[in-house]
Design a protein around this nucleic acid. Structure first.
Lengths: 87, 87, 87, 87
DNA sequence: ATTGATCACACCTTGC
DNA sequence: GCAAGGTGTGATCAAT
């Protein structure tokens, strides 16, 4: 194999290793997050709702309002009572 | 292979085939559902909201109220203003 | 409500009904599958292993498709035309 | 608010903060991965193929684990004890 | 019946 | 803008 190919091969190995290393770290963090949810659950918190809280804090309020408006519209079109779902 | 084992083998084959057949049908239905959503999208409907509508109609209202109560509680505990998220 | 909105409303209803109908069918199939597993269990088969068998047969199929995809990818990466017959 | 509720509230805040902190870290790692791919691309590598390589190496690892699981399952189905050394 | 694990489905982000 | 891959969520099943 030529020297040029050697360099390319070394680079490739390096990239693969760096990516795999980072993905491992990422997975670890993901597992940590799971652990925290589990711990919260062990302390009596409802993880589903907890996730919702996290999600709400992340979300942009405007987008939410927008979606709400569309949903309300559809429900009205179907003749369903609105002002029920706060979920 | 004994006759007893033959029977067992035949039965096994039969079960596997029946299950695979049914799973295929199930997948077909799933694809059909996807198609309907796609068609709705093509007619200008927001599929995300449409899914929400379907989901709402399926859900039991009591459960929803229950979840809402817990969520509200958590948000209050965090000092977040409530009555915002209708999502 | 305008005629335009009437049409939209009718369309919406139609989509919702079609989806709900299909989901009902899907659920029926799912129940059928459950029944077959129950029957198999009643005939002395270990459902856990049976599920594994089904799963493996599905994976095998997927993997074959995967192999084709990889081959095509590599050929493309090498600059080779790939629109050959699909076997 | 009662002392009991205070504790719950503090716990909740703590959980939310820990999760949000971890998710931030996770996002950072994700961005790092993106950077590596970009760098690889800058060095002439085809990122699509590179991703495929990473993916294949991951699958291989998963499959090995899978094989172990199947073996154990079958041994259990045959009534054999399986708590043997993990290699 | 309830809970925990497993699995498929849906969403979202990213790359093309 | 579409396609795909990864992530998160919900349903399902076995075990207690």
């Amino acid at each position: 194999m030529s020297q040029v190919e050697d360099v390319a091969q070394d680079q490739l190995r390096s990239f693969v290793e760096r990516i795999e290393r980072l993905e491992e770290e990422k997975k670890t963090i993901g597992d940590d997050i799971k652990d925290v949810y589990a711990e919260a659950k062990g302390n009596g918190f409802d993880t589903k709702v907890l996730r919702k809280v996290i999600s709400l804090r992340k979300q942009d309020a405007n987008e939410r309002a927008e979606q709400d408006a569309i949903l309300e519209l559809y429900l009205q079109a179907l003749g369903m009572v609105v002002d029920l779902p706060k979920n």
